[in-house]
Design a protein around this nucleic acid. Structure first.
Lengths: 129, 129
DNA sequence: TATGACGTTTACGTTAACGTAAAGTTATAA
DNA sequence: TTATAACTTTACGTTAACGTAAACGTCATA
């Protein structure tokens, strides 16, 4: 039998509030099962939530995150749909690549700066001896 | 003589509005010279703006971007300050690393998914022959 | 049976990050 | 000298992404 999660469990795991998770559902990004009125989350819901939050961390809006998620469960029925899907994937991939490059150049310049700082610190430490 | 920029020039170059640039100044992240009441931006101001916008693209808030920028022009006078600065740089570096890893794992799973889509498309194209 | 613990809906509140409009200033071109 | 283009300040408006509070349901356990 497949594992399930309560809203509080997911909230704890991902360090968000239940309100946040319900908000994503209201925005059409999650559709957990119900047991009575309670929400029951599947492992798949959990993956979706993780996708949303990773998107947010990378600076995507919820609307953009939603687009990406929708790509992941788009219908791959016929060839036409598949071609469109592949196109859209390539476009999102470009956006991601850009972010990775941004992160890499930021890291590079920061590392360079930190190296100069350490150098300067070394000089200071060897001067006062 | 060093180059300068008007607010509209920078706005055009970075694809933001003048309002946005003025807002960053009001938040204490920019301090352009004035010629009369007009703002005159230096190459250094331009770099700062680029830093802000890169931070935003990576999902940092303006407050976080400001912290990073302040590290870049922190006083490196004495050894104590330098040590604190180096510590803070390491912490920001970690945040950046995390974003890069997020971007990389997102790229990896997306590439994998796209590959499966292309495979499926290939099958469809060879079946109807 | 009552008392938490956990969940629910509804609805109004909040904040960051600007957008937008109004009214005035300043340099340049016709 | 007037017009227009680019700038300025002031101030109120807007939107995304939740926070927060109220009032209620339900299930286990003391």
């Amino acid at each position: 039998m497949d594992q399930t999660y309560s809203i509080a469990e997911l909230a704890r795991e991902f360090d968000v509030t239940p309100r946040t998770i319900r908000y994503y559902e209201a925005e059409g990004m999650l559709a957990p099962d119900r047991k009575g009125q309670r929400r029951i989350y599947s492992p798949r819901d959990r993956v979706t939530l993780a996708l949303i939050l990773r998107g947010k961390r990378l600076g995507f809006s919820l609307a953009e995150a939603k687009e990406i998620i929708e790509l992941y469960d788009a219908p791959q029925g016929e060839a036409g749909q598949l071609r469109v899907l592949i196109e859209k994937l390539a476009s999102k991939r470009d956006a991601l690549e850009a972010k990775r490059r941004d992160a890499e150049s930021a890291l590079a310049s920061m590392d360079e700066y930190a190296a100069r700082c350490r150098e300067r610190l070394n000089e200071l430490e060897n001067t006062d001896r």
